[in-house]
């Protein structure tokens, strides 16, 4: 299968994309899907740091067998358009876990796009996305959840929080739910705010300089995305690369 043409912003999943970045990626890049099949009862965890000076696109198609589990933890710190897409299909009793952080200034767009298909009953999914931006940086999360007609007892959650360190930055969340079963739990939340000035002053009053106070508050904010990652070394690595992107950010 080839994608004959580039997508446009009229395509729902590309609504907030950086179209110049998409054009530079080209049609060929759009056909690059990484396929991950997790057999019944098996478990897969992927930890990734993505983003560089050039546009990047990372596309995953994940198929989870009965009772299988896939977990993705991603720090997206691109200095240019950086998009991570994950399509997941869950069989009975499978679980999909996603923790994602977009962080950065400049004018780049970083985004996560997920499509989680609960195709059979009793599968669960949990997605936690945190976006921290400054200058005119942009963070997006487009999260589509589809629950098939017979996929009863589905439990799907997605939680997005954006933290904007400057007025010019932005964070967008587009939850999209298509639910055809009736006995389903589907929770989604999205908030965008600024740094807690009260907490920042409290920290400074105890001696932390403005950069250290900001770093600690951002660490606490993005930490949510990686709490369900058990491997401490991996978790530290994802957090540290995210926080190192903060150096030079607006205070």
């Amino acid at each position: 299968m080839t994608t004959a043409t580039l997508p446009t912003r009229r395509d729902e999943a590309w609504r907030y994309a950086d179209m110049d970045g998409v054009a530079r990626l080209g049609v060929a890049a759009l056909d690059q899907w990484q396929l991950i099949d997790v057999a019944a009862g098996d478990s897969v965890t992927r930890c990734m740091v993505v983003g560089s000076d050039a546009p990047e696109l990372h596309r995953f198609r994940v198929t989870l067998g009965e009772g299988a589990r896939a977990a993705f933890f991603v720090t997206n710190r691109g200095a240019n358009y950086t998009r991570v897409e994950i399509e997941v299909r869950l069989a009975k009793g499978a679980h999909f876990e996603f923790g994602g952080v977009t962080i950065g200034g400049g004018s780049a767009t970083r985004e996560f796009v997920t499509q989680v298909v609960h195709a059979e009953p009793e599968a669960t999914s949990n997605q936690t996305i945190r976006a921290v931006h400054w200058n005119t940086g942009i963070g997006n999360f487009l999260g589509e959840i589809k629950v098939a007609r017979h996929a009863q007892k589905t439990d799907a959650a997605q939680d997005f929080k954006g933290l904007l360190l400057e007025a010019g930055a932005s964070a967008n969340a587009v939850p999209q739910l298509e639910i055809f079963a009736d006995d389903v739990k589907c929770a989604h939340g999205a908030t965008v705010g600024a740094l807690d000035e009260g907490a920042r002053f409290y920290m400074m009053a105890r001696g932390l300089d403005p950069a250290a106070a900001q770093r600690l508050l951002v660490q606490a904010f993005i930490g949510d995305a990686f709490v369900s990652l058990d491997d401490e070394a991996e978790r530290e690595a994802l957090l540290d690369t995210a926080l190192s992107a903060l150096e030079g950010a607006q205070l």
Binding site: D196, G198, A199, F201, Y202, M203, R206, G207, L208, D209, A212, L216, L217, Q219, A220, F221, G223, D224
Partner: peptide, 21 residues
């Protein structure tokens, strides 16, 4: 009115504060 800081432990906060000072 002491301020709540979710996600940051007292130990980490105070150690960083003391060492910054």
């Amino acid at each position: 009115y002491p301020v709540e800081i979710p996600g940051v432990s007292n130990v980490q906060f105070l150690r960083e504060a003391l060492n910054s000072q």
